[in-house]
């Protein structure tokens, strides 16, 4: 049970990772990321219903996520970043609201099952009961994060990405367009959200509210780990997931949201830049 909780925690980590991607390049995050998860899941489900085979559905769903990410960047983020304001917080919240309402009306308010070819019967490993589906979630999360990290470290474009997060002006002087890099980060962050949606849907079912609780915990993970800490999110995600399943076991399932939120507020009190985050230097 603790292990399944920890595996769920990996999904929080994946979404939190999506926040880190955009924060690195633009110091902004998409507050409507949960709706991106949900919309991509719905879209993938529709692909399946239209007769698209499962393994083709995945790239289709991911592409949809990328497109949504780019739309968010264009409509909600770019202008306010140019104005050096924090209007993007409000605008991405608004985008989430619009997405939520659209999903409610297009796909309905009910939760729907998401078919999967991966077996869901529990297996026993060293006395721990775990389903192949849960394992597939873990594998999927680590694979996506691994590929993106490899991209950032091993390709020149990835290094350019890091350069923009380190010093935007200097990166521009190298001929690296900060605007394109920010678009790239939002695209990747949309891809990550879509992946999270596809991975988690078979377990949670698909519905407009499927990501509401999920996203809160992803926020918690991102802030506790620090918005610039790379793999710190994985550790915090696993920890939080495990903690949650313990809480819901001992205090009742209604309380399962509580530890993450308390953890978040406490972590902020002790280390405002996150447990794994770096302190920032104020400049005059």
């Amino acid at each position: 049970m603790v292990v399944s909780g920890a595996l769920m925690g990996l999904v929080y980590a994946l979404i939190a990772y999506g926040f880190q991607l955009t924060f690195a390049t633009s110091k902004s995050i998409n507050f409507g990321q949960g709706e991106l998860v949900m919309l991509s899941a719905f879209f993938s489900l529709s692909l399946l219903n239209w007769g698209v085979p499962y393994w083709l559905m995945i790239p289709g769903g991911l592409l949809f996520g990328v497109v949504l990410g780019l739309v968010v960047e264009r409509a909600c983020v770019r202008l306010t970043l140019e104005q050096k304001s924090e209007g993007w917080i409000l605008l991405t919240i608004i985008f989430g609201l619009l997405g939520f309402s659209a999903a409610e009306n297009i796909w309905g308010r009910d939760d729907r099952p998401f078919p999967t070819p991966i077996p869901t019967e529990a297996m026993q490993f060293f006395g721990v009961s775990i389903t192949p589906l849960e394992i597939s979630v873990a594998v999927g999360v680590l694979a996506v994060m691994g590929v993106i990290e490899l991209f950032k470290r091993k390709t020149l474009l990835g290094k350019a990405f890091e350069a923009v997060s380190a010093d935007r002006d200097a990166a521009e002087l190298m001929g690296i367009s900060a605007r394109h890099t920010i678009m790239l980060s939002y695209g990747l962050s949309g891809l990550v959200a879509a992946m999270a949606g596809i991975l988690i849907s078979p377990i949670t079912t698909v519905g407009p509210t499927m990501a509401t609780a999920l996203i809160l915990k992803a926020f918690a993970v991102a802030v506790v780990a620090g918005l610039d800490s790379g793999f710190g999110v994985v550790l915090v995600g696993i920890f939080l997931g495990a903690l949650e399943s313990l809480t819901s076991f001992y205090l009742g399932s209604g309380w399962r949201e509580a530890p993450g939120l308390i953890l978040l507020i406490m972590a902020l009190a002790v280390r405002p830049n996150g447990v794994f985050g770096k302190a920032s230097i104020r400049k005059v």
């Binding site: 924060f23 110091k27 902004s28 995050i29 507050f31 924090e86 917080i89 809160l216 926020f219 918690a220 991102a222 802030v223 918005l227 209604g254 309380w255 949201e257 509580a258 993450g260 939120l261 308390i262 978040l264 507020i265 902020l268 405002p272």
Partner: peptide
Amino acid sequence: PQFALATLSFSALSTT
């Protein structure tokens, strides 16, 4: 953003 997240968590916590 971190402030917005903290307040969001607080409100979720109080609903819980």
